[in-house]
Design a protein around this nucleic acid. Structure first.
Lengths: 339, 339
DNA sequence: AGAGGGACGTTATACGTAACACTTCGGGCC
DNA sequence: GGCCCGAAGTGTTACGTATAACGTCCCTCT
């Protein structure tokens, strides 16, 4: 009989089944083949069930020296994108007997102060998604195996990186708009210091430069619908010829642009085209549906976890960016003035 | 000098500082006042910094018998609502030295198979949000202290519950529509077995019954924009007089209703009014902006964590539902035929 | 002078588990 | 008969930490 108040231990189970604690560990750890008879094993399992035994994770982790738990650090969970990343990562993890603990950084995309103070769980590794470089060094302080998602490979201090091919996504967007005849483009950029947004601006500029007579104007906005609305209104009421298309750093910003355009009495896509990036549920909820770049969040999470498992195994994580593709919907059309 | 490969332990720090392991524990645990001299304490801290010492959480948890970590089980993170719940819970937790580990149930709202297989962290308690009753019993199997969020107080097997006053929210919605003159209402209901949706239907019916000549039609849809669109189209093309308003179980369903109405050529709110529930970012992204019930997710999370801390302390968690309030926007107006 | 007591530590132990090394026993084989 | 071998277990230890219990000094008070 176990002590009344506290949770039963493997020793309690052993006592109840009339065997040693070692035998319990063997049986419950499924390492008993050829070491314990089937009848004894069954007796142990029965006793464990009877007592409602659940192993003490802290003790196991201490003994084993690892926890089979990894931390996934994400920016604040304000879009379902990171839910997808988690789902993918958790799926692969589960397949290898790993658990995933989620830490949504309160600071959002950018610096994450101390992921570990919050998630006090003992960890085997970390996947950090869309974090700024200074946050990276803070995390790097702990020598935990680390994989960076959506991060500058050059600036990641040797940590493995896995990336979506955002550059190619922006190339597809730009080519789509250029192909429709657009030449003056407003870039509605996220006002957040992050590599992932830098490469959007870089590729947009690079691609536009291949066609003569093009012009990019840039407006910066915090990643919120109202912030984007305000920034767009300001940019579009500025003097000079009006852009014929708005390229937004993500779908949320695009939703803000929609609001601004409604207020200004401009119609999409007749007066102006809009593109996003992410393909959230939001993209098909607004009218007209948004032309955007579909990011496969789950694959992203899967690849991230595979990379971390490789690092933990001492293997080389496989490289290569994850392809993305443009989804053309109703928010883009040739410019009216084009001819 | 510590062993080269493995992480430094408190004993390594002790050796480096020329003191005993106990002294290290005392100093780093901030329990050294009057037991260790300031100079020695500083020497210990210096050595710890030098070696990059971080305590082994597994060992600490084992020794202490608790982890100061709680699990927050939420349905799949497809809206930012649960991000708010987490934020609130984590804020209160941090204030008490607790960490929060997030487990998004892959099954969504409804049954959660095994939260603990995934989050392998050792836990002191659990907060389960919007879970079905059978999931509850599964969780209850472990005798961990438990708080249920958004759950039937009667069916929670004695676990503490914290609820938003959804009933009052629906009352406000219904009274708003009745006040505008609406009498025929379509209830776009989430096709998910959950107490939180049951009480919506119940209160809507109860409130409508107080006014003679009213009629409720019900359409069921999975919680997705396209599911809601399909269900709404089907319901509105059915024979009989058309409803003048649609009450949706949440904002996402309302976004689906918007799409259906656009397809059917019906204008909001001129031809038909629509209401939601949640007040997500989505609610102000769609056109016209959605009349909905604002739920304060962060307060919800805070109250849930406070309740769990009370349970852990052996205190009685304080009761009382969290108030919600209607936000009237452009999607509701008097019915055209009224008057 | 002897007792008392702070200041400054140390020694020893337990938490619950997993795994290594060892024992016992019965049988098979030459 | 002697030997080895596999089956079926058991005894013991270590993981790293926090803390209770225990020692010294040395200073002060009576």
């Amino acid at each position: 009989m176990a002590r009344s108040n506290t949770r039963p231990t493997s020793r309690d189970v052993a006592h109840a089944a009339g065997v040693s604690q070692a035998a319990v560990s063997l049986v419950l750890g499924d390492k008993w083949r050829g070491r314990v008879s089937e009848t004894t094993a069954e007796r142990v399992r029965e006793a464990a069930r009877e007592l409602g035994y659940r192993p003490n994770l802290a003790a196991r982790n201490l003994r084993l020296g690892h926890t089979r738990t990894v931390l996934l650090v994400v920016p604040a969970l304000t879009t379902e994108f990171f839910a997808g990343v988690y789902t993918g990562a958790a799926r692969i993890a589960a397949r290898h007997g790993f658990g995933v603990v989620l830490y949504p950084s309160p600071e959002g995309i950018g610096p994450a102060r101390n992921p570990f103070a919050s998630a006090q769980a003992a960890l085997d590794g970390v996947i950090a998604s869309s974090m700024a470089a200074d946050a990276l060094t803070a995390i790097r302080g702990d020598q935990l195996p680390l994989v960076m998602l959506d991060s500058d490979p050059a600036g990641s201090l040797g940590a493995a990186t896995v990336n979506l091919d955002i550059t190619d996504g922006i190339r597809q967007v730009t080519d789509h708009l250029l192909g429709l005849g657009h030449r003056r483009i407003l870039h509605l950029a996220a006002d957040v210091p992050s590599w992932t947004f830098d490469i959007r601006a870089r590729e947009l500029a690079a691609r536009m430069a291949t066609v003569p007579g093009t012009e990019i104007r840039t407006a910066r906005a915090p990643i919120s619908i109202d912030g984007a609305r305000t920034a767009t209104e300001t940019a579009l009421t500025a003097p000079g010829p009006r852009p014929t298309a708005i390229v937004c750093d993500d779908d949320k910003l695009a939703a803000g642009a929609y609001k601004a355009l409604r207020r200004l009495g401009l119609r999409i896509p007749d007066d102006i085209s809009v593109t996003g990036l992410d393909d959230l549920a939001l993209a098909t909820a607004i009218d007209p549906e948004l032309t955007t770049v579909r990011l496969d969040a789950e694959t992203f999470g899967e690849r991230g976890m595979q990379a971390l498992l490789a690092v933990l195994d001492g293997r080389e994580p496989e490289g290569g960016d994850i392809p993305v593709h443009l989804v053309v919907r109703g928010s883009t059309a040739p410019p009216r003035t084009a001819g």
